[in-house]
Design a protein around this nucleic acid. Structure first.
Lengths: 158, 158
DNA sequence: AAATATTAGTACTGGATTGGTCCTATTTAT
DNA sequence: ATAAATAGGACCAATCCAGTACTAATATTT
């Protein structure tokens, strides 16, 4: 199926949490607590997002992470791309990868791009603000597979 | 990243080939030849598509597969769903799976559905006809990862 | 009627992807 | 100075998926 990677899933959840606390730093352990995700994984994900320029980080004591832009200005495509690289349903849709050596002859390529563009276009219209719950949830988020419960935190929530 | 499963990828390519030969049966080995995919994999995929009712199959000598409906009537969502099950970017978007036990309290669920609906909606507008090349290609199709070339067939084409 | 050709169904195996963890360095507030 | 937090990188493990093979069923052709 077309599915989001776990990390991309986490990213959106974490970003949504941060969007719920604008103008204040949040730390990785707190976000882990709030989302019910393991701390190391949260830390890793936040690093990726900061590296991509979607979050600003403050080191040291009283440090943490905060959104750089307003949630309305952040399409989910950007979050996904930050964690997983550009959205490409098939390799066909990736440009300038010298792998496709007969691309000039391949009529399917442009067709694959249609599908890819459809998905990206749809996703570009969804912003982080659309994903931010009105009331701040203290509800753990469950990713794609239920196998996550090694520590048995919280409960399964979708 | 959001990526199509290999099988879903194959399915669309195979269906597109069949769409290029309407009103005639095509056999698994022929389709494998034309697409450059391994025969057993093609056979497996065709079985899935037939089982889902997207293809009609004819057993025995001079048998083969053919589209049941016209290519214009087949949204790619249906092809993907036939092979991989319903499109669900996260488990959150799956309904009636008793896993999410606090769903009434979880405000994120409806937000995930927004993303899912955006993707499904976009994909529903793309039909198999959009994916069928005007000229019948004898060009092998390359799936997501280049690791396919065990037999070194043809070349990499996207 | 027999033989051949083709799909139906199923189970197994190997590998690649990725997610999760840990360790060390660096920075900042108290 | 110490503690608290992120930065960065390396590594391990497990899950998922694709590819294969084998047997059964069915239809055509001779």
């Amino acid at each position: 199926m077309i599915k989001l990677s776990r990390l991309a899933d986490y990213s959106i959840v974490l970003m949504a949490q941060l969007a719920g606390h604008p103008s204040s730093l949040m730390q990785a352990p707190d976000l882990a607590l709030v989302t019910g995700l393991p701390v190391p994984t949260v830390a890793k994900t936040l690093k990726l997002l900061a590296h991509a320029g979607l979050l600003e980080s403050q080191r040291g004591a009283k440090g943490g992470y905060a959104l750089v832009r307003a949630a309305e200005e952040i399409p989910v495509t950007e979050i996904i791309a930050a964690v997983d690289g550009p959205i490409a349903l098939t390799d066909c849709t990736i440009e300038d990868d010298g792998v496709c050596n007969i691309e000039a002859l391949c009529p399917t390529k442009t067709n694959w791009r249609k599908i890819n563009d459809a998905v990206v276009g749809a996703l570009r219209c969804v912003t982080l603000a659309d994903m931010t719950p009105q009331i701040a949830p203290i509800v753990p988020h469950r990713p794609f597979e239920p196998t996550l419960n090694h520590a048995g935190q919280g409960g399964d929530v979708g």
